[in-house]
């Protein structure tokens, strides 16, 4: 019988899990969850191609007479923009899982674990980044059909740009999703702010042809630098308003700012219910 209430010696867990192990395990979960849902995998592989072909072909024949984007065929002009769009959609929408996790209760069990919030942000954001960057790189396989032929160094640079854009947008998605309790509201924000952001990033039409106020908007839009960097790498001949190093630097800054924002959101502790 229990005649004393002293606790038995139990194997103690290490004092703290640190940041990397929890971040790794959260990243791993994002990846496993992704490939266990076959429809998501199909969507990731097929949607880029469909978007590019449908939008590109449609625009190409409709606006040929304008001759806007230089001498390029529109399908070629649109290629970098399509890649950014794919990355944008995947990055933002993978972070809808934050809302689902919160609703289902999974997030609660992470929040009561002795895990620094930095690890939660890092794990979730890198999970989303991986998925969207991989999707972006798969789309790169179609590059030869857009008249793009890259050497290994260029491929690496493109991969870096794709990673930075994925990371910053996923972090942004995390920051938006964290305080939300419904995915409908999340969709609302995405439609209101993020799709317009892509529309004025130089993905669909070049900066030079736009009106004055729109040019200002395009210049402060971080996505513009992603599109410009990709276009510069893919079509070295085409005139670019932004040199590659400055675009890269802008993307790095944007990534850090978005991660900081996500971190701040996740570190709020309040007197309001967490779920």
């Amino acid at each position: 019988m229990a005649t004393q209430a002293t606790t038995l010696p139990r194997p103690m867990a290490p004092a703290s899990a640190g940041v990397m192990l929890p971040a790794f395990t959260l990243w791993w979960r994002e990846i496993v969850r992704f490939y266990r849902q076959p429809t998501r995998v199909v969507g990731v592989l097929a949607s880029p191609l469909v978007f590019w072909l449908v939008i590109g072909s449609g625009f190409g024949t409709s606006f040929r007479s304008g001759g806007g984007p230089g001498q390029q065929h529109y399908l070629d002009y649109f290629y970098p923009g399509a890649l950014i769009m794919i990355v944008l959609f995947t990055s933002i929408f993978t972070m809808m899982s934050v809302i689902e996790d919160r609703k289902e209760g999974f997030l609660l069990s992470v929040l009561v674990a002795p895990v620094p919030r930095t690890a939660i942000v890092l794990g979730k954001v890198l999970g989303g980044t991986t998925l969207s960057a991989v999707q972006g790189m798969i789309f790169l396989l179609f590059a030869p059909f857009a008249g793009v032929h890259l050497d290994p160094v260029q491929v690496l640079l493109v991969a870096l740009v794709v990673f930075l854009v994925s990371f910053s947008l996923t972090a942004l998605g995390f920051a938006i999703a964290w305080p939300m309790d419904s995915s409908q509201a999340f969709h609302g924000i995405v439609n209101l702010f993020l799709i317009p952001l892509w529309l004025v990033s130089g993905a669909l039409f070049p900066l030079t042809g736009a009106s004055k106020w729109l040019q200002v908007v395009m210049r402060v839009n971080p996505l513009t630098y992603g599109v410009a960097a990709l276009r510069g790498l893919m079509y070295p001949g085409a005139d670019s308003s932004f040199p590659l190093p400055s675009s890269m630097a802008t993307l790095v800054l944007f990534s850090m700012a978005m991660f900081g924002l996500a971190w701040l959101m996740a570190n709020r502790r309040t007197t309001r219910p967490a779920a």
Binding site: A13, A17, L21, T25, A113
Partner: peptide, 10 residues
């Protein structure tokens, strides 16, 4: 396994 990682077990 995932839960254990959150508590620093490995």
């Amino acid at each position: 396994w995932h839960q254990g990682h959150l508590y620093g077990l490995r």
